[in-house]
Design a protein around this nucleic acid. Structure first.
Lengths: 237, 237
DNA sequence: GAGTGGTCTAGACCACCGT
DNA sequence: CGGTGGTCTAGACCACTCC
């Protein structure tokens, strides 16, 4: 259905300002009008302007300086940042490569002890073993586990699409995730599926995805080829 | 001086709620009073309550459900998350280890091409080569570069403390940072200083720190021992 | 001192959840 | 339907920056 909702006033102001940014009407380093003037332009209150600006600040486009003004950031936002996207398909595409997926296995099995503890629901686990491709080159090997109960009725061929889309359609949209990072060496199996040498450096990511209600809905074990694409993390004090 | 500033009302409400959380008065899964009641309790308006709750949501303690209520998150917040701290000293301490630092070198030199482009100021670069310890075990080797102009007048012995503290005192408090992650293998030098085998897996982090004005103030090249402590990244959709 | 963002209020109406 | 969070307003005063 993808209900077409009226964008909030905050959204409208944010989009309006963003348009000025990408069109170049507001160049990097330029100073924005003050908050009252922006409010007049869009016909909204100052509180609404502030929330819109806050969003653009978090996205890295703007910087506020108390007592001075609001300015356009010089350094453009880093794409495919690890902390602001959860979809690797998107990440690969934004890095300028053609994303692809190869399904190695698709099984239903009993939960492991770790999974039984992690997931609130009981029952079997659907495990998907895949290799992601960037321009036909293997870049990520992953083993994803989802409780079968969460995606009952989803046709098997849907598994070839994004698991996030599958979960969202089943009413379990992923809102946030926790990822643990660990550098490892490629063993024989990983070397084969990722087409690297045995002992090559890989980044292992152990990730748990949570839906809007805060329930764990997917466990992902991933191994990333070292130089496939830049993995960026934005850190804040 | 560390000016003692009156905490804002938002801070007071956030602290008050946080106290209930850590004391267990509000158990995981419990439902909070509605926003008007919280406002009455602290004597503030609903907007103030909402901003405080927003902070606790971003920190992962609370979850709001439209039309239902605000609830205490079940999974406790992961400590030493890579995206919410920039100080490794803190990270090591929170992981339950005694942090330590060994300074390998402390030199002043001309900027590299990359540094000249990155930093807004000109002049020489102060480079600090260090090994961080957790309970006397080497866990991170780092090479930090700061434009000398930014920390003029800082006594040399200050370099043994946190560089973030040094920068903050010089009026360049670090607000955010961008980190690029890359799994690598230990070469001979890294193996020696980190006391691991040659070819051992390491996590290389290439980080740029920015101050409140958005200017780059420090460039850090780091190599982390694989299993020293868990590196977590919180991701949001 | 003039102008900016930072904080806060009191109230209104809307959208969603559960009974 | 009542209760919850989601959005928004109009106005006030404070804190900081810069001339």
């Amino acid at each position: 259905m993808t209900a077409t909702r009226r964008p909030s006033l905050v959204d409208q102001v944010r989009s309006g300002l963003l348009e000025d940014l990408v069109s170049g009407k507001l160049a990097p380093g330029a100073k924005l009008p003050n908050e009252n003037e922006i409010g007049e332009r869009f016909g909204v209150s100052r509180a609404t302007v502030r929330e819109a600006v806050l969003g653009l600040m978090e996205a890295g486009y703007l910087a506020r300086r108390h007592g001075s003004g609001t300015y356009v950031t010089k350094a453009p936002r880093s794409r495919h940042a690890l902390d602001s996207t959860v979809s690797y398909t998107e990440m690969i595409r934004e890095a300028g490569h053609e994303p692809g997926v190869m399904v190695l296995s698709n099984t239903v099995r009993e939960p492991t002890e770790e999974e039984a503890e992690l997931f609130d629901v009981t029952g079997t686990i659907l495990e998907l073993e895949r290799v992601r491709l960037a321009d036909a080159r293997p870049v990520i090997y992953s083993r994803d586990s989802i409780p079968s109960a969460l995606i009952e009725g989803t046709p098997p061929q849907a598994m070839f699409r994004s698991l996030y889309a599958v979960l969202a359609e089943a009413g379990h949209e992923v809102r946030r995730a926790t990822a643990e990072l660990l550098p490892v060496l490629a063993d024989t199996k990983l070397a084969r599926v990722l087409e690297v040498k045995r002992g090559a450096p890989l980044l292992h990511i152990d990730q748990v995805d949570y839906d809007t209600k805060g329930h764990a809905v997917m466990l992902s074990l991933e191994w990333h080829v070292a130089d496939a694409f830049e993995l960026i993390v934005n850190r804040r004090a």
